[in-house]
Amino acid sequence: MNQGKTIFAQVMDFFPKHQFRRCVDRYHGNSRVRSFSCFDQYLCMAFAQLTYRDSLRDIECCLRAMDKKLYHSGFRGKVSRSTLADANENRDWRIYRDLAHLLIKEARELYQHEDFGLMLDETVYALDSSTIDLCLSVFPWAHFRRAKGAIKMHTLLDLHGNIPSFIHITDGKVHDVNVLDVLPTEIGAIYVMDRGYLDYKRLFAIDQTPAFFVVRAKSNTSLRRLYSKPVDKDLGLRCDQTVVFTGYYAQKRYPEKLRKIKYHDTDKNLHLTLLSNHFSLPAFTIAELYRCRWQIELFFKWIKQHLRIKTFFGTSENAVKTQIWIAISVYILVAIMKKRLKIDLNLYTILQILSLTLFEKIELFQLLTNSGYRKEEPDICNQLKLFGS
């Protein structure tokens, strides 16, 4: 007799199963599938992410050791490394991309009022990319350099809750600035970027949305000052100027005025020159917005350390993208669970606890809060009494 749910099953209670079926049907994921469905594939890959498995053999060995608990955790198909490898190889990775977008939408609604250090009415995004190195002989499709392969994960991070709102995966040769061509621009939002995204035509497209940007200028950027505003140098500010580009092509591609702010970071002894089309915010707030861009660097560092996106279970482009999108969806799913259960622990601690307790039968809230909370179990009518009354 089964009493209670496993931790894994309770985590999957936050999984949008009905919407996932629509994603599967959209790309015919379960077409001609007899036993190992797309949901079984997702459960196996989610298990690998949550328990830090390193290979398909590792996944198979650990899950078969828990064979008697798999059915009550949601598994319906037989777990086999060859079957999982075939699923990762052949089932469309866009199924899991669409799933991740559904979870991202839900998570952003939950975290939209989270504070990131600046009280602003606008939505603030940080845009950057992270390179994942691959062996070119094993992943010949991942073009990067002559003797080196890689893929890039271009990410737009919503600083309210550090939720990725847009992710675009390309090979390593694609320059960062090209992602601005496919980036969905939100009216009134602020996009904070490093100098790799300084492209006059693409920035002007953001300005015409209309949306705002804060980007670091390059050392050879030619500008002409129109007028200046006074600044408080005690805050690290050096100038706040209204400028225009001086080059012929630069003026043609970005004909409007810009705001130039120079800031000295005393902690790092770093001089920054920032360009923005936002003229109503204080200059120090613009500088603080760029400082908050560091959150996306921490996000990349975190997911590379705690999710399986550096070692892959397959070598094809489909298998790699499937694993990355499932890893992202697991990250978002845990973030949703954390918010809905109102857990005070950080995501790192939650993942560490889950990695050791996935097949334990204990209340998830009790496990993560270490409280004495217990769910009342109903009386079992067919339980025999040892002593009669």
Rank of each mutant, 00 (worst) to 15 (best):
V11A: 06
D13E: 14
F15H: 01
H18F: 09
F20I: 10
R21F: 04
H28L: 11
G29L: 02
G29M: 03
G29S: 05
G29Q: 05
S31R: 15
R32V: 05
S37P: 00
D40T: 04
M45T: 11
M45A: 03
Q49G: 09
L50Q: 06
S55H: 01
R57S: 15
A65I: 06
M66T: 10
M66N: 13
M66E: 14
D67Q: 15
K68F: 08
L70W: 05
L70C: 06
H72P: 08
F75N: 03
F75E: 02
K78D: 04
Y96L: 08
A100Y: 13
L102A: 02
A107L: 13
L110W: 00
Q112S: 10
D115K: 15
E122A: 15
E122P: 12
L127V: 14
D128M: 06
S129Q: 09
S130T: 15
L136P: 07
V138F: 02
V138R: 07
P140V: 11
G149K: 03
A150W: 00
I151S: 04
K152I: 11
H154F: 07
T155Q: 07
L156E: 08
H160S: 11
N162T: 09
P164Y: 01
S165V: 08
I167L: 10
H168N: 13
V174F: 05
V177R: 06
L180S: 01
I190T: 09
Y191L: 02
Y191C: 06
M193C: 06
Y200D: 07
A205L: 12
P210D: 09
F212C: 03
V214T: 06
S219E: 14
N220E: 13
R224E: 15
R225I: 15
Y227L: 04
Y227P: 00
K233Q: 13
L237P: 05
D240E: 03
T242M: 07
T242K: 04
F245Q: 02
Y248G: 08
Y249F: 11
Q251I: 04
K252C: 10
R253H: 14
I261N: 07
D267M: 11
D267A: 14
K268D: 15
T273C: 13
S276E: 04
L281C: 08
L281H: 09
P282T: 04
I286T: 00
L289E: 00
R291Q: 13
W294V: 10
E297F: 00
F299W: 12
K301S: 09
I303E: 11
K304D: 10
I309W: 10
K310R: 14
F312N: 05
N318K: 05
T322C: 08
T322L: 05
T322S: 12
W325V: 02
S329P: 03
S329H: 01
L333K: 01
N346K: 13
I353C: 08
L356R: 01
N370D: 12
N370W: 04
S371F: 01
R374A: 09
Q383P: 02
L384H: 07
